[in-house]
Design a binder for these strands. Structure first.
Length: 804
DNA sequence: ATTATCCGGGG
DNA sequence: GTGTACGGATAAT
């Protein structure tokens, strides 16, 4: 019979000396099933012309060679003699390849370090979460889902994946602010899915809430949890930091209480892997720790600098956690009764947030799963470098290119010491400027790699000595012009695929398409970093060196062409150029861009980033000439674009940020230094006279450890201690708010909490010197306004009671 | 400056 | 498991 289904998870096991692949997933009809395939054989590859009889005879313990097949392959992008050496067991490959290397005629052994289940997906061209059509027959097995034996398996149409998601969260007994898996019980477990919400707890109280379910004990709660998961039959269990907290905690408690956690669809137990950083695995169900995915993949695009469930939910969903006093949860538990209900609701809200966050980022996760052809469990835990690597592995296999091995430890160490010359920065003179245009190279590094055919196997080929060459500190490099390289092909493909996606996206906006476009962009941009990444299989320092060298070449080219055309170049960093128009027009600048573009090879292109009526460039520190990455621009819409200033930082008071922003705004919009000066003077004056309200002088700093453990007590620690003295609980991660008040001694002795500070108490002089002045002094330096002068004049003016 | 270490998330 | 942390910030030298 033919079954259409969507694989979610993949495992393998050995039965009767033979490896079996288990694909778990959901059918188009919505049934959860397992498809078993016994047809796939483990193997590795040898290059050279081996003595076949000797190679065939290679064995160790139970490991034997079962077959050898001659194959045409490329090694490092050059044709090579190769043989595929089939072995009886997956683990035989890494062992037997060591012996195979010693056989006469063998020049190398490869592809012995690819995990078996991943090997299966690559070779069969099967993509998780994407339709697979399998010719199968029913088989009997003691699994939780019906099993089928595969006779033939192939990929099907791209359609929406039917997925059942279940979110999980636990609350624990926690009396001394220390998480103790061994001592403290789990008090509640919440589950949330489509048309399903439940909180299980083991202390009964009166409630109308039907979602709360009471059991007799912690052990019963754990058993009930397992039962509910089996009833719900999720494809995906999702949680927030469940790899590091909820599942390891459940695991430890179940061990102590002797509860079976047979969550796996093959009846296997929940598995906790890793010593320092744990991972939780359930056979057949994709456990997604959405915190990990958000932090590693989505996080770059978020404004929040905390990845707490509360902060992330607020930004992505516009929803937050319930506010309850977690510090006293254990007391409420001890006492029992109806006061426990808000904690149940809090527990459930966390699962709701987790569920919705998962729904929100799932398109991106699915896109990565499809591009990298790896299970969602793996994608969830993978760093970017590995996205590039597994994409390369898939592409290499399709092209008959031998997958290179991971470097040995010593090799990796040597690579770590290799440094490459970075990007070019043209430092601007600090100053105030008008009429600027900004150009930047679109996807500079990827387009260089594609256009110059930069690839590991093509460095300084013998056949193309007349290819374009690039000088670097490491030597002169060129790349073969006769063959298209692996990197270049893959990157041009990525760029073209993305252009197509963007075209579709223009026709109609779509979540999945947008995620796809973003994933492809990020992937292309990661190639440069990958080439210089020590543990990379396709590590190529010459390629990385050539890429930055060409980048420097092209940015210089743009700068020189602009200068020749009579433009003043103000600033340049990596891929962008800032020009002053002076007497020239925007049209002339655009013509210059066209001229530069005409001479660029391949996919490279200089883009018009924008026109700015005014801008200010500020030196980083007094004495340091340049103003690298510290500038503010005003666009034609009147919006400020601020780079590198302190305005966004949390540990500055509101008034400091406000003054800096307003000064920049006055300068850029009105070009009126006098007005800016007077404005600051007024603020200084109102600080001196304590006219400004307390709320504007609150400083916020995050506490990073418990108050008692600090060796040097900073102002925020002193404030935290005050809070503790008042019976409030603070802990690592709390944001401490404080105000500096008048008085003598160290700052930490002059700290008060905002609610205990009256308006005439705060130390205006402190705020002027430590918050206002540092934020504006470099801006004023550019405008030749003397800050000391500003201060004394204010003193006078306030003394005589008039403004100058 | 450069190198080692600590930490996040979770209650 | 045919493989495994990572990246950023802060403290220490």
């Amino acid at each position: 019979m033919n079954i259409k289904f969507y694989p979610v998870d993949i495992t393998y096991s050995i039965e009767d000396g033979k490896p079996l692949i288990f694909l778990y997933g959901r059918t188009a009809e919505g049934e959860q099933i397992c498809v078993i395939d016994d047809s796939f054989k483990p193997y590795f590859i040898v290059t050279g012309k081996p003595e076949l009889d000797a190679l065939k005879a290679v064995k160790q313990d139970d490991y034997v060679v079962t077959d050898i097949v001659k194959a045409k392959k490329n090694l490092n992008e050059t044709e090579t003699d190769a043989h595929i050496v089939y072995v009886n067991l997956p683990k035989a490959a890494p062992e037997l390849q060591k012996l195979a290397r010693k056989i006469k005629g063998v020049t190398g052994a490869y592809e012995h370090d690819i995990p078996f289940t991943r090997r299966y997906l690559i070779d069969k061209g099967i993509t998780p979460l994407t339709q697979v059509i399998v010719d199968a027959e029913k088989t009997t097995r003691d699994f939780r889902v019906p099993c089928y034996f595969a006779k033939n398996i192939k990929s099907g149409d791209e359609t929406a994946t039917p997925l059942k998601i279940l979110a999980l969260d636990i609350e624990t007994y926690n009396p001394d602010n220390k998480l103790d898996f061994k001592k403290n019980p789990i008090l509640m477990i919440a589950l949330y899915g489509e048309k399903f919400s439940r909180v299980i707890t083991w202390k009964k109280f009166k409630t109308e809430d039907k979602t709360i379910e009471f059991v007799q004990s912690e052990a019963d709660m754990l058993a009930r949890f397992v039962e509910l998961v089996h009833q719900f039959k999720p494809d995906m269990i999702t949680g927030y930091f469940t790899d590091g907290f909820d599942f390891p905690y459940i695991f430890e408690r179940a061990k102590i209480l002797k509860v079976k956690l047979d969550l796996g669809l093959d009846n296997s137990a929940l598995e906790i892997a890793g010593r320092k950083e744990t991972e939780a695995k359930i056979a057949g169900i994709a456990h997604i720790d959405i915190f990990k995915f958000i932090k590693r993949v989505i996080g770059r695009g978020l404004k929040t600098d905390s990845y707490s469930l509360d902060a992330v939910s607020k930004e992505l969903l516009g929803k937050q956690k319930h506010k309850v006093d977690m510090d006293h949860f254990f007391k409420v538990w001890d006492k029992g009764g109806e006061e426990l209900e808000p904690f149940c609701k809090y527990n459930l809200q966390d699962t709701l947030l987790t569920y919705e966050l998962t729904e929100k980022v799932l398109p991106t996760l699915i896109e990565f799963v499809r591009i990298m052809r790896l299970p969602p469990y793996d994608i969830n835990r993978m760093p970017y470098s590995m996205f590039v690597e597994w994409y390369l592995i898939n592409q290499a296999h399709q092209r008959g290119e031998i997958i290179l091995s991971k470097p040995e430890h010593t090799e990796e160490g040597e690579r770590m010491r290799e440094r490459i010359q970075g990007a070019f920065v043209y430092e601007p003179k600090p100053g105030y400027y008008q009429n600027l245009v900004v150009f930047d190279y679109r996807s500079l590094y990827p387009s260089i790699i594609a256009s110059h055919n930069i690839s590991k196997g093509l460095v300084n080929c013998e056949c193309c000595k007349d290819a374009p060459k690039i000088e670097t500190e490491r030597g002169t490099f060129w790349y073969c012009q006769k063959r298209k390289g692996l990197f270049a092909t893959i990157i041009s493909d990525l760029i073209l695929i993305r252009a197509e996606v963007k075209k579709q996206l223009k026709k109609k906006s779509d979540n999945l398409l947008a995620a796809r476009s973003e994933a492809l962009k990020v992937l292309a941009n990661s190639f440069y970093g990958y080439m210089g990444f020590a543990p990379a299989r396709w590590y190529c320092i010459e390629c990385a060196e050539s890429t930055t060298a060409w980048a420097r070449h092209y940015i210089h080219k743009a700068i020189d062409t602009a200068k020749e055309a009579g433009f003043t170049v103000l600033y340049s960093d990596t891929d962008s150029v800032f020009l002053l128009l002076e007497k020239k027009t925007k049209e002339q600048a655009l013509a210059l861009m066209d001229e530069i573009n005409k001479k660029l090879p391949g996919l490279m292109e200089l883009d018009f980033e924008g026109y700015y009526p005014s801008g200010i460039f500020v030196s980083l520190k007094a004495g340091e000439g340049g103003a690298k990455k510290k500038y503010a621009l005003l666009n034609e819409k009147g919006e400020l674009k601020i780079k590198g200033f302190e305005t966004v930082r949390r540990n500055w008071s509101y008034i400091a940020k406000e003054v800096q922003q307003n000064v920049l705004s006055i300068i850029l919009k009105e070009n009126d230094p006098k007005k800016a000066k007077n404005y600051v003077r007024e603020v200084i004056d109102s600080l001196r006279k304590n006219k400004l309200e307390v709320s504007k002088v609150i400083i916020k700093t995050q506490l990073t450890k418990a108050t008692g453990t600090y060796t040097s007590v900073g102002p925020h620690v002193a404030a935290a201690q005050r809070m503790e003295a008042k019976g409030m609980t603070v802990s690592s991660g709390s944001i401490i708010k404080y105000v500096v008040i008048k008085g003598k001694g160290k700052i930490r002795d002059k700290v008060k909490l905002p609610e205990e500070t009256s308006q005439d108490e705060y130390d205006g002089e402190y705020y002027i010197q430590n918050q206002i002045i540092p934020g504006i002094e470099r801006i004023f330096a550019v405008l030749n306004i003397n800050v000391d002068d500003l201060m004394s004049e204010t003193k006078q003016s306030s003394l005589f009671g008039y403004e100058k």
